[in-house]
Amino acid sequence: MISNGSRRRDITVADVAKAANVSKAQAARALGNYGAVSDDVRERVLAAAEELSYRPNELARSMNTGKSHTIGVVVGDIENPHFGLATRGITDTAKKSGYNVILVNTDEEETAEVEAVQVLLDKRVDGLIVAPASSVETEHLRRVYDSGRPLVLLDRAAAGLEVETFAVDMTAISYDSTRYLLEAGHRRIAFVSTLKTDRPYVAGMELASSQISERLDGMRRAFEEKGLSQPVDLVRLNAGDAESIKRITRHLLEGPDAATAIVASDGLIALSIVEAIQELGLSIPADVSFLMYDDFAWTRLTTPPLTVIAQPVYEMGIAAASALIRQIEGRKPSAPSTELTARLVRRGSVGSPAPEKPSPDGGAGHAPNDNQFTPA
């Protein structure tokens, strides 16, 4: 058994100072990159630190400099490839600038987000990037902003909070994609999202997510321009796990008033919807057309390849991290913020609606309205 006394102790600033033949204060300034120190001293200290395999005590250094060189990132669902790709853009950018990243997942729960923000502040992160679980309940973000701590929002805006926000305006691209479906002949267009609400969707209701609100606004605008009413009974929120998404899909595709096209609000939802369509023995796009948000490699490998709304997700992460680091370092913007726009990529999953099949009794019939909402 190896005793604790035989373990190699950590190398300290004092050890580096002794090896470099300088004072402890000089070594600390050279290693922390603060204060005045000559080039000769800096070179000797850094050489000694490398030879001794010195690793700085980040907590002590942050107390000396007021900077931890750490960024806190809070997202709703890291399993969602959308946030995974955005986070990669953040971490790549942070690493190039000498910053570490602490990532927290909240499962889109507001309470978890409030706690996550406080934990990151307690860990003395230099700034925060947050994808708000709610664009409405944002008092905790207001407190961060009022405290002067650098804050950037990712993917979603926060009402009444004027901070740099890096997100795509979804209204225009949702309008374009809906018009594309309408021009193909579709009228019964469904929309499926995991956004949590306490009641079924009705047109114009306040939603907690700016992204989903914009997407539904764009859809409604496209219907109205055609002189049509958006079928709000086909807007399904509160989609949860894979089984609930498949259940919603089955309900959307039942009966003579079934959806003829489905729009999935993210890649995880899309996978479960496509699986449910296959389990029903239906074909895309012969029986139902399909369109989804975000463009991932697998969407090009299906038969047929899927029509998608491609967002610059990685670039969104880069832009958010760059803006936060600029704030942390006290630099002013050198150019206008990066313009983030989405585009419709037309592939093979959208076609004309299938001919209506009469019900056995000759009646019109209606698909069940399973909004999967959670009672308050």
Score class of each variant (00 low, 15 high):
E139Y: 12
I78D: 00
N238D: 04
T106R: 02
A19H: 10
I262M: 03
R236V: 15
V104Y: 03
L291R: 00
G160N: 11
V37L: 03
D198C: 08
T260L: 02
E339A: 14
F83S: 03
S210H: 02
P150F: 11
D217C: 07
D122W: 09
G240W: 06
A167L: 10
E58I: 12
T197M: 02
V345E: 01
D92C: 08
A116H: 03
M1L: 12
N371Q: 11
R124T: 11
P56S: 12
A49N: 06
V117I: 15
Y54S: 07
T171M: 11
V308M: 01
E183N: 14
G348F: 06
H186A: 01
Y201M: 08
G72V: 02
L59S: 12
L228C: 06
L141H: 13
I78V: 15
I277W: 01
I11C: 10
R7Y: 10
A184Y: 09
P355I: 05
K96I: 09
S3E: 12
Q311F: 07
L182M: 07
V235F: 05
G218W: 05
E224Q: 13
S352V: 13
T194R: 14
M63N: 09
V350R: 04
A203H: 08
R250W: 06
A270P: 03
A264E: 00
T93I: 06
L195N: 04
A94H: 09
L301K: 12
A208P: 04
N100M: 12
A36V: 13
V125G: 00
P375T: 11
I309R: 04
L252M: 11
A354F: 08
T374C: 05
S147E: 00
F296Q: 05
P312Q: 09
E356S: 14
A203G: 09
I284E: 00
T307F: 05
R156A: 04
L344G: 06
S53H: 14
A116T: 08
V75G: 01
A30C: 08
N64M: 14
K357V: 15
L103H: 02
V45M: 06
E137I: 08
F296D: 01
E254P: 06
A342R: 02
A20V: 03
D92V: 08
L252C: 10
A259H: 03
A17L: 02
W298N: 08
K196L: 13
P304W: 01
G5P: 04
P81H: 05
V73S: 04
S334A: 15
A258K: 15
L344F: 06
S359M: 14
D39P: 08
I262K: 05
S244H: 08
L151Q: 10
G35Y: 02
R300I: 05
P353S: 04
I129T: 09
V168E: 04
I129G: 06
D77R: 07
M316R: 05
R88F: 09
I78R: 01
A208H: 10
M205V: 07
R142P: 04
E254T: 14
T70S: 14
T341A: 14
L324P: 03
D257Q: 15
L128R: 07
S352E: 12
N33G: 09
V16F: 00
M219C: 07
F290W: 09
V119P: 00
S193D: 07
